[in-house]
Amino acid sequence: MRIVAKTLLTSLIAILVSSSLSLAKDVTVEVTSIAAAAVSAEALSRSGGPAVDSEIEALAPKLQSLFAYNSYSFLGLVRSETEFGGSVRLELPEHFVLEVRPERFEKEGIGRIEMMVTLLKDIRTEVAGAGRGQPREEIILRTKIRLENGGTVLLGGPPISGGILVLALSARG
């Protein structure tokens, strides 16, 4: 009787564990780079352009209700695919780099992608006597997140020439 009970229990645990383990799956990562800025009304009327670029119109309502900036300029969109356990390196404007490493897919619930996200700044330091720069990267942010499959998280804050850098990071597995 005990053997039967043990066997049943082991099977149950095996089923539970296997169902919660991530499956090998490709992930598409997309990053929209935006320059957010607070500009005067005069400057806005002089430029005659919209405060939000057309490429990021879908994001505009969220950005406008979340931040106090009144100008959002689209800087670029990069998309790449990788697999769980792999990593993708996305080159962003002004020598920023976003490294995304999806680690596992949580099937239970709404479905989440657990990933390590690193924001780097490619800087060059002058080497004495060399007369030219040496490539060097500075880790500005490293975060581990569990993002809803197909969801978006906003990363931002570093100052850039056009204001403040805001990144809309989405991932779909």
């Binding site: 709404i110 989440r112 657990e114 700044k121 500075e138 880790i139 500005i140 942010l141 490293r142 975060t143 581990k144 997140i145 569990r146 993002l147 809803e148 969801g151 978006t152 998280v153 804050g157 570093p158």
Partner: peptide, 22 residues
Amino acid sequence: SGGNSCIVESLETLSVGYTPMA
């Protein structure tokens, strides 16, 4: 510190002069 769409497990910076928050 995550809502429904994203849960932040850890957060750090390795550079002087930056403070990350979620």
